[in-house]
């Protein structure tokens, strides 16, 4: 809608999927969360069952616009639109979600990490519809961190970092890390190889952020690539520290 409003897009055909039955369910089953494409972003953010499993969806989701836009904006729309600042693109990638899409002929399921290809670019074919997103259960002892920088309160993200850490036996047993606006699509960087088996203290985090020296984020009128690289460093530090602290609480 905003792009049509700004006369950037003039599609020949518009299909209103709001009344398609069966696309607006949320289910939480044995820790697995399934969200229909038509679920409003505000419904997702305020859903206590979802937040109990994946608090990150509430935390990061509440950065997506304002409640006035989230009341109408859908989870499927955000994912299909794949805006470079889309918090839901970052969180689906971080949480290892899968996205189910279908056309009149077939249905397929894609990993979020394969779905987002660039700004407003996805693996969706022209005749495919996103129908639902599945988030796998979070392992016990998992904590999340999400930090975002924007020019004004709840403005589009200049940059954001999301992280999750799972603790077993007092050390990191698995970890994931995604940066938003550091690359054309949500950037998932291997962090497990650095952190697994370790206590995630300041030194470990510094080790991780050192890998960002060669990062080359996009420059646009909102920010330079150099600024986004600095933000990536700061936000990653904070996201990892939060994830570790939250994981420690989860195992306590």
């Amino acid at each position: 809608m905003p792009r049509m409003r700004l006369r950037v897009e003039k599609p020949a055909t518009i299909i209103d999927i709001n009344r398609v039955v069966g696309l607006d369910g949320i289910s939480v089953d044995a820790g697995a969360v399934t969200v229909g494409a038509l679920v409003r972003q505000q419904t997702l953010v305020t859903h206590d069952g979802v937040a109990a499993v994946h608090p990150l969806l509430r935390e990061a989701g509440s950065y997506a616009g304002f409640h006035t836009t989230r009341h109408r904006g859908t989870v499927g729309g955000s994912i299909a639109f794949a805006a470079p600042w889309a918090e839901l693109a970052a969180t689906t990638t971080l949480l290892g979600a899968t996205i189910t899409v279908r056309s009149t002929k077939a249905q397929r399921t894609l990993a979020a990490s394969d779905f987002f290809l660039g700004p407003n670019q996805t693996a969706l074919a022209a005749d495919e519809l996103v129908t639902e997103v599945q988030f796998p259960p979070a392992p016990a002892g998992t904590g999340f961190g999400f930090h975002e920088a924007s020019p004004r309160y709840r403005d589009y993200a200049t940059a954001a970092a999301a992280a999750s850490i799972t603790i077993a036996d007092g050390v990191c047993s698995s970890a994931a890390w995604v940066l938003l606006r550091a690359a054309p699509a949500p950037l998932s960087i291997d962090v497990a190889s650095t952190l697994v088996g370790r206590v995630v203290d300041d030194a470990a985090i510094e080790n991780v952020v050192q890998s960002l020296a060669g990062l080359d984020p996009p420059t646009d009128i909102e920010a330079s690539g150099a600024h986004r690289r600095r933000l990536a460093v700061t936000l990653t530090r904070r996201a990892l520290a939060d994830a570790w602290a939250n994981a420690q609480e989860a195992v306590a």
């Binding site: 809608m1 905003p2 409003r5 836009t69 109408r72």
Partner: peptide
């Protein structure tokens, strides 16, 4: 006209929404 400023806000069936983003 793209959902940011909020001057077009209305209540639609009791929920606040941007009227510039609906047909």
């Amino acid at each position: 006209e793209h959902g940011f400023c909020g001057v077009c806000n209305i209540l639609l069936d009791g929920q606040t929404v941007r009227s510039c983003l609906l047909f």
